[in-house]
Structures are given as structure tokens and as C-alpha cells.
Design a protein around this nucleic acid. Structure first.
Length: 491
RNA sequence: GGUCCUGUAGCCGAGUGGUUAGGCACCGGUCUGCAAAACCGUCUACAGCGGUUCGAAUCCGCUCGGGACCUCCA
């Protein structure tokens, strides 16, 4: 385990801070998960992979991480946080399904895609609909404290009152007075004392099918409430890391802070970490823009913007090649470059166990180890870590070609580094187990290679090339070396 | 309009006030029957204009461009 200090960028302070868990070696991390009313798309992959990286790296460092990522299956409304139809209920109405049928269907689709991307499942994946009681309790606490008021059966958070005693906007930098001026007019605003107030509990209209009993009305919880309730339940009232996409910074996370400050008397998280967005041709993916590509389409290449299919690992590598706080612009060229680079890395990892050691090393593996930890300790800088891993790739290939030597200690260290960083932290793995060893296939390939070698000895290049080309067409690659021909499956 | 981020070579993408990021592509070389792979090497950069400094792509200002949030979106 590495003992160098870890620095993380905290959105609260807008700078990198030394990471010190509240109760080491335990780390509590809460990340806002998907609202399950549609297929997971590239935008869902970014936070999932970002916080998977953080989860995995903290684990490598020896922390005992409890990672909670919720599923929003109620309360997230169309058009406005306080108005409009519930997203899941709307889908259910359109497709004539139970709301929970819709949620389950898309949860399964989400899990399938995340598993493909080799995103580790969180420690706990709570659903908002399963925590209505906890949410009602928080609303009651806020009312009791005098910061929630009832209006026509709905409960709202009194922002103006809050701002007098607390610092509203500490996370997003928003100023309440500006919001009061710029908030646009919406239906139903007359229930609120102030347009900036947000809903804690909404009374259900007659057609609203997802509804629960509460002290105030039959209704449903406000969107921001679930994260406050579930994070406190599983991680405590103040925990280490709260994560999510930058688009959630305002108003969602800002509102969470308000709720937590009143209900618990303190902010929910010590470190706030936000991943940036993915853009397509320089523009954010968005429903209204109609330019978002779902992950199934990526895996199959079935979208007009895609010139080919991209494997889950390619997408993962592509995302990790940029720092999580930068926007990543999607393009076929960038994805193809990522695909090739990743294969180079993974092929080197396959070669690694076959290397032989020498009495001395001509390459600096220990320096590499230091650089890898330094990169990750600097706010999880995966692109730098990957750049250093390509240095390791060069060493592996040099040793494999007999152009460099490596000691037994360095070889073992190199294996450890690949296992720790490529497999465990970056979560990269070879795809398509079709290349898994298979005695029959090995035997057949040996026969084919022997036949081709005979042709080569007879200088029958036509036959030798024919065999190689046709194997190529089957995605079997031949590589002629001094010691004979090697083969592997894959481009 | 308000708040904030950003502009790096053909493409993608790191970065520090003074020393090669890295990947993909291109070109040349080694190797090979020819390839592929690998390795070696070359070549394209820091939006523009000022300022601070011995020195700035890196700090400051302005201009131009791109983006995010303020509405649902990860």
C-alpha cells in the first residue's frame, strides 16, 4: 500500500484538498445514481466510471469503502423539480405498465450496461421508493425546525428564512437574490411563498399513480429528499464523499445541503466531487437536442453517428483517458484511437507473464510505480496514469524483443503494477473470452501453422499468404518471429 | 442577462513559470520472403493582442471562439 497523501478536488472549496477520511480506514461515499425511466446512455457511463475509478483506487489504498449509489424511481418530475409529471409514472402511463415494472426494466438495462463496462456494483443501491418513511421523517424534522411550511397539502422548504441564518449557495456559488429575480414563472408557483422554495412533499393530483400516505396529504416526496434520507441512513449524517455529475450541482446538491443543515444540523459531506459532462461534436448530450446515444447502440454500432460498434472496454478506456473534471468530446476518431491504444496496453499485459528475468534491469520500474501513485494521488489523474502505463508497455515489449533486461524483482513489481492499476484501478480487462485457451483450437492452430511453415520453407509464398490472410479474415492474427509463428484472436 | 469553466500540434488529450506528457494518425529506419506486430527516429503546439518577469503555453488584463449551470438531462 502506498502512503503518499491523496489530494482530491473539493467543489465546496474549489481547490484540491488533502483527503482525510472522518473515520479511517472507513470511507463513506454517496453518488447520485440514475433515474430509471430510459435506457442508459453515454452520459450515465461517465459518473459510473468516474466513481468506480475512485471506489477502486481508495480500495487499493487500503480504505474500507462503503459506496452507496441510489436509484431514483420516484419523485423526479418532468419539466421542473416541483411541477409536471413524474418521469417514471409518465412512462408507465404511456406503456400501460406498473411504474415499478418500468423501473425494474430500466434498472436491469442499467445493470447490464454497467456490468459490461466493468463498473463494480456499489455496496448498497437503495431505491427512493423503498425509503418513503425515512423521507417523511426528514420532512417532519424540517417542519419542526421551522423551515418547512404546508401549502395546499404540499410541503415546501423556506429558502428565504434559511438564507438568513445559513449560507445558501455555498456549493454552487449561487446568490439567492439573483435566483429570486431570474426564476421563471411556472404553473403552481402560487403555492410557494417564494419561487426559490423547493418541494419537500407534493400532494398527488388525482391522476398521479405513485402515491403514499403522509401526515400532510397522499402524495410523494420531492426529488432532493431521497439522497438526504438514504445517505444519512447508510453512511451517517456526515460522510466523506458525495459525488455526481456537474449538472446536479445546482439545484440538487445545493438543496441536499439545505435539507441536511436543517434536519441534521450539518452538511452531508466533507468532500463534494463532480464529474464533467460528455459532449457530442462539442455540444452536450441532451434530450431536447436529440443527440444522445445509448450504450446498447454503442455496443452494437447501431446509431447514425457511429461508424462502427465500440466495445464497452473501449468506452471505459476512452472516458478514463480524460480527467474526470474535463469535458470529453465524443467522436469516432477519438474512440478508434482509444480502441487501438487500449489493445496495445492489453496485449502487453498478455505478454507480461511470458517474460523472463535477467540479473539486472536496464529499465526503471520502481520509478514507474512512484509515478503511477503520484498521478492517482493528484485528484485521480487517470490520463497521466495511463501515459505512464504506456511507458511500461514499452518496457515489456523491449524485454520481450530481447532489447532490454529486467530483474526478477522488477518483473514481479511490473506484474503487480499491471494487476493493481490496469486490472484493479482502471478496471480494464481483455474482452471476448473466445481467445480463452482451448485445447482443440490450440491443436488445430498448430497444424495450420505447421502446414504454413512447410509452405514457407518451400518458398511457396502464395500458400503461406493465403493461410495468413484467411486466418486474418477470421480475426486470427499470425505473427512470425524468429522462433516460429504465434497466433492470437483479436484485431 | 447572471454565475462559472474552457481554447494545447492532423485527431484525442495531460501539464509545470525555465528541462520529451501520452495515445491515435503520418513519414523515415531496424526486423521480415512480403506483411503485421514491436522497437528507434523525424515532423506538425500551446486562439489573438498587451502586461508582470531575467524568462510564460503556464500569472494578470482585454479581444475573439467554445461550453456548462440558472428548466428535464449524468
Amino acid at each position: 500500500m502506498n502512503q503518499q497523501p491523496l489530494f482530491v478536488y473539493n467543489t465546496l472549496s474549489r481547490k484540491k484538498e488533502l483527503f482525510e477520511p472522518i473515520k479511517p480506514p472507513f470511507v463513506g461515499m454517496y453518488v447520485c445514481g440514475p433515474t430509471v425511466y430510459g435506457d442508459p446512455h453515454l452520459g450515465h457511463a461517465r459518473p459510473a466510471i468516474t466513481f468506480d475509478l475512485i471506489f477502486r483506487y481508495l480500495t487499493l489504498l487500503g480504505y474500507k469503502v462503503r459506496y452507496v449509489r441510489n436509484i431514483t424511481d420516484v419523485g423526479h418530475l418532468e419539466n421542473d423539480a416541483d411541477q409536471g409529471e413524474d418521469k417514471i409514472a409518465k412512462k408507465a402511463r404511456i406503456e400501460q405498465l406498473e411504474p415499478m415494472e418500468v423501473a425494474q426494466y430500466y434498472i436491469d438495462r442499467y445493470h447490464f450496461s454497467m456490468d459490461k463496462l466493468n463498473v463494480r456494483r456499489p455496496s448498497i443501491e437503495p431505491r427512493a421508493s423503498g425509503h418513503i418513511i425515512e423521507q417523511i421523517e426528514i420532512v417532519q424534522k424540517i417542519i419542526d425546525a421551522g423551515f418547512g411550511y404546508e401549502s395546499n397539502g404540499s410541503i415546501y422548504f423556506d429558502m428565504v428564512k434559511y438564507n438568513k441564518t445559513h449560507h445558501y449557495g455555498k456549493l454552487s456559488g449561487r446568490v439567492l437574490d439573483d435566483l429570486l429575480v431570474s426564476t421563471r414563472e411556472l404553473d403552481g408557483q402560487e403555492e410557494k411563498r417564494n419561487p426559490a422554495d423547493f418541494a419537500l412533499w407534493k400532494k398527488a393530483s388525482p391522476e398521479h399513480i405513485m402515491r403514499w400516505n403522509s401526515p400532510w396529504s397522499i402524495g410523494f416526496p420531492g426529488w432532493h429528499l431521497e439522497c438526504t434520507a438514504m445517505s444519512a441512513k447508510y453512511l451517517g449524517e456526515t460522510f466523506d464523499i458525495h459525488g455526481g455529475g456537474m449538472d446536479l450541482l445546482f439545484p440538487h446538491h445545493e438543496s441536499e445541503i439545505c435539507q441536511s443543515e436543517i434536519a441534521h444540523g450539518k452538511g452531508p459531506a466533507k468532500y463534494w466531487i463532480h464529474n464533467n459532462m460528455i459532449t457530442i461534436n462539442g455540444q452536450k448530450m441532451g434530450k431536447s437536442l436529440g443527440n444522445f446515444i445509448n450504450l446498447y447502440e454503442f455496443f452494437e454500432g447501431s446509431h447514425a453517428l457511429l461508424t462502427q460498434a465500440y466495445s464497452p472496454m473501449t468506452i471505459r478506456f476512452f472516458i478514463l483517458q480524460a480527467h474526470y473534471r474535463s469535458t470529453v468530446d465524443f467522436s469516432n476518431e477519438a474512440l478508434q484511437a482509444a480502441e487501438k491504444g487500449m489493445k496495445k496496453l492489453l496485449v502487453a499485459q498478455e505478454i507480461l507473464p511470458k517474460l523472463t528475468s535477467s540479473p539486472t534491469s536496464s529499465e526503471d520500474v520502481k520509478g514507474l510505480e512512484k509515478k503511477l501513485y503520484e498521478a492517482m494521488n493528484d485528484d485521480f489523474n487517470s490520463p497521466i496514469a495511463i501515459a505512464h502505463l504506456f511507458e511500461a508497455v514499452r518496457i515489456i515489449n523491449l524485454v520481450n524483443d530481447g532489447k532490454a533486461t529486467i530483474s526478477i524483482e522488477d518483473l514481479e513489481l511490473l506484474k503487480t503494477l499491471f494487476s493493481d492499476f490496469v486490472t484493479d484501478v482502471l478496471g480494464l480487462k481483455a474482452e471476448d473470452s473466445t481467445s480463452a485457451s482451448n485445447d482443440v483450437l490450440d491443436g488445430v492452430m498448430q497444424i495450420v501453422i505447421d502446414l504454413r511453415n512447410q509452405a514457407k520453407q518451400n518458398k511457396d509464398w502464395a500458400t503461406a499468404d493465403k493461410i495468413r490472410n484467411e486466418l486474418n479474415a477470421l480475426n486470427v492474427l499470425l505473427k512470425d518471429t524468429k522462433d516460429g509463428s504465434e497466433w492470437r484472436i483479436g484485431e
